[in-house]
């Protein structure tokens, strides 16, 4: 390989849905490139097409216009090297933690191998769920359930991790802890992360770059690198630099809301 291709590249991506009441344009002219192992946060008003952007990257739908490519290849179908974490953990209620984590392998191949089991154990330990292997999802807290959701997404060891407001169902404290946990995982095993959120501070704390989308039809109105170097911790948000940055993001979002 001469030049390492971008992990994800959107070029002129537009998405229009035909509904009973007419056409809805969710995304319009989105052109962004994301380098390998970059952590990108996406902010934008509700309904602007953030989840759609994620689905396009996952190969779950095709863009109406433009193209999405992953590692230099146009996305035509879901790929093995892309993992997804949803807003709600959506675990299998009948399966314990271990079976939920190993589910991608079981679902894909129809069976679970010895190596899969070992791999499960390793991932369960990484996400801090050791000792809870045989619990059912209903016996776990929301934060733990989402840990299982993340472990499941990591199971096939994807290069790209797509996360759709993964912590928005959690209480503020758990949410913060999970954010730092995610950073720890990401630093231990670097991945390209596309992280959708409604929280400005979460975006600023976790990401390398923050994309701000406009109201529907979603366009990229800002693409701003986070000024503070890593590693970051709770105090990072307190610096003047970060306060200004967060204020800037907020003004971009609010202007759109008022418009």
């Amino acid at each position: 390989m001469a030049l390492a291709p971008n992990a994800i590249a959107f070029s002129g991506v537009g998405q229009t849905f035909l509904t009973g009441t007419g056409a809805v344009t969710a995304l319009d002219g989105v052109s962004v490139t994301i380098a390998q192992h970059e952590f990108i946060a996406v902010l934008g008003p509700s309904g602007c097409g953030k989840s759609t952007l994620l689905r396009l990257t996952a190969g779950l739908m095709k863009p109406s216009t433009g193209s999405v490519s992953v590692f230099g290849l146009p996305v035509t179908q879901p790929r093995d090297d892309v993992g997804i974490v949803f807003q709600k953990p959506t675990l299998l209620p009948w399966a314990n933690v271990e079976d939920n984590v190993v589910f991608p392998a079981k679902h894909k191949q129809g069976r679970v191998t010895r190596e899969d089991r070992d791999q499960t154990q390793a991932i369960i330990e990484t996400v801090g769920l050791a000792g809870f292997e045989s619990r059912l999802p209903s016996e776990l807290s929301g934060g733990m359930q989402q840990r299982v959701g993340i472990a499941r997404a990591l199971f096939l060891n994807p290069d790209i991790l797509l996360m759709d407001e993964p912590f928005s169902a959690l209480d503020a404290l758990t949410r913060e802890t999970m954010g730092f946990e995610l950073l720890r995982l990401w630093q231990a095993s670097p991945k390209t992360v596309l992280f959708i959120t409604h929280s400005i501070s979460e975006a600023a704390l976790l990401a390398d770059r923050v994309l701000v989308l406009s109201e529907r039809p979603g366009r990229v109105i800002a693409d701003l690198p986070v000024p503070t170097a890593r590693p970051r911790d709770e105090s990072s948000l307190g610096t003047a630099e970060m306060q200004d940055y967060a204020a800037h993001l907020r003004s971009l979002l609010i202007r759109k809301d008022a418009a």
């Binding site: 779950l60 879901p78 997804i84 709600k88 679902h107 894909k108």
Partner: peptide, 18 residues
């Protein structure tokens, strides 16, 4: 069934009977 799980299944390109 939650649509997320159906999407998970599709993203894994698992056979439809599964």
């Amino acid at each position: 069934t939650p649509p997320e799980l159906i999407e998970l299944s599709r993203s894994l390109r698992a056979p439809s009977f599964r």
